[in-house]
Simulated assay, not measured.
Amino acid sequence: KLVYFKKAIEDMATGSLRRVAIAYRTYEAEKVPENEEELSRWELSEEELVLLAIVWIKDPCQPDVRGGVELCQNAGVKVYMVIGDNLETARAIALECRILKSVEEAAESNLIEGAVFGALSDTEKEEIVEKISVMRSSPNDKLLLLQALKRRGHVVGVTGDGTNNALALREDQDDIGLAVGIKGTEVAKANSDIIILDDNFASVVKVSFSGRSVYANILKFIQFQLTVDVVTLIINVVSASSSGDVPLNIVQLLWVNVIMGTLSALALVTEPLTDQLMNRPLVG
């Protein structure tokens, strides 16, 4: 029976199912504390338990997660999954979410136990940190992963919802911390830079979209402003050199900059987001 149950548990793990064992044991009622304070500290011995059932729970990916992960990957943003479940469950969830695109990618080189990663030297961590995609770890191991990525020069964003993620979400540890607003604890929210109100991974993609849009609009505005200023300068210099007179005086130049600069800035800032932004290579 033990072999049968172990096989069933392993099969559940490979199917991205979380397992809950239900068991009971007999106990003398007189030995159970009646005082509430004592009862809160009392622990029932886990010996001599009788197994009733093993229940599996399916925690499916949200509909937008797979598309969001693929958008991030196409944009050059690597998504890491750091999870507390065992490695087989983590592998199955990563395949379902497309963090790992194929069974071949779900090889041992792309997955690692947090304890194994934590035991490596800093140099060894930096050598393998870009190869792995999935880690089963504790909050401390998550922090070590974050620090290794930063030492490699990466810009790192961290998502989290629990109090144990607060250290990784802190401003001095990551470049940007994202806490979930519905399930997230107040400690996680207080240590984050951005709060995702709908607890949806697709919103993380929107953050990246918005950042790239702002950067692209700034570049467009600078390009536009330089074009106007350089052309105006050339016209005035050439005219002054050839005829001794300038077509645009100081007041007219100021009006050109005020009117064109303001209107162009408004036009560029209000440009809608496009999918092409996520296909551009990373900057920095």
Score class of each variant (00 low, 15 high):
Thr227His: 09
Ser213Glu: 10
Gly68Lys: 01
Met260Gly: 13
Val20Asp: 04
Glu127Pro: 02
Ala29Pro: 04
Arg152Tyr: 03
Gln62Asn: 07
Lys206His: 14
Ser121Tyr: 04
Gly284Ile: 03
Lys31Ser: 15
Ala166Pro: 08
Val230Pro: 10
Leu282Arg: 09
Gly76Phe: 04
Gly184Ser: 00
Ser264Cys: 05
Ser45Phe: 06
Arg66Val: 11
Pro272Leu: 02
Thr14Tyr: 14
Ile112Ser: 07
Phe224Thr: 02
Thr89Tyr: 01
Gly157Met: 13
Leu143His: 06
Leu197Lys: 09
Ile99Tyr: 01
His154Leu: 14
Gln252Pro: 05
Thr185Phe: 04
Ala13Gln: 12
Ser192Ala: 15
Cys97Pro: 02
Gly68Ile: 00
Thr227Trp: 05
Thr89Ser: 04
Arg152Gly: 12
Arg91Val: 02
Gln73Ala: 09
Lys183Met: 13
Val20Phe: 14
Arg136Pro: 06
Ile176Met: 08
Ala188Cys: 14
Pro139Ser: 07
Ser138Arg: 02
Asp275Trp: 10
Ala13Val: 05
Met260Tyr: 09
Leu39Met: 13
Arg152Asp: 08
Val69Glu: 03
Ser203Lys: 00
Ile83Asp: 10
Glu88Met: 08
Ala53Lys: 05
Leu44Ser: 08
Val79Arg: 02
Ala21Tyr: 04
Asn165Thr: 12
Ser109Cys: 11
Glu10Trp: 05
Val204Leu: 15
Glu130Met: 08
Glu30Asp: 15
Pro281Met: 02
Arg66Asn: 00
Leu71Asp: 08
Val55Ser: 03
Ile218Arg: 01
Glu48Gly: 04
Thr270Gly: 06
Ser45Gly: 08
Leu167Ala: 15
Asn257Glu: 07
Leu266Tyr: 06
Glu105Gln: 05
Val231Asn: 11
Ala119Leu: 10
Asp59Val: 01
Tyr215His: 15
Glu105Gly: 08
Glu108Thr: 12
Leu248Trp: 04
Leu219Met: 12
Gln173His: 14
Asp85Ser: 06
Thr185Val: 02
Glu38Arg: 13
Gly153Phe: 00
Gln225Arg: 12
Val3Tyr: 03
Glu48Phe: 06
Glu130Tyr: 06
Asn110Tyr: 10
Ala8Lys: 12
Ser138Leu: 05
Leu233Val: 14
Asn249Val: 11
Glu104Asn: 07
Leu149Cys: 12
Ile259Ala: 14
Asn200Ala: 10
Asp11Met: 13
Ser208Asp: 13
Val228Ser: 08
Val69Phe: 03
Glu46Pro: 10
Leu253Asn: 05
Val204Tyr: 08
Lys1Trp: 04
Ala90Met: 01
Asn165Met: 11
Gly153Val: 03
Leu44Phe: 09
Asp193Lys: 02
Val251Pro: 13
Asn164Ile: 06
Ala107Pro: 04
Gly284Pro: 05
Thr274Gly: 11
Glu37Pro: 07
Ala90Gln: 01
Ala267Cys: 11
Gly157Trp: 12
Leu169Gly: 07
Gln276Ile: 14
Glu88His: 09
Val156Met: 11
Arg152Ser: 11
Ala94Leu: 02
Asp64Phe: 00
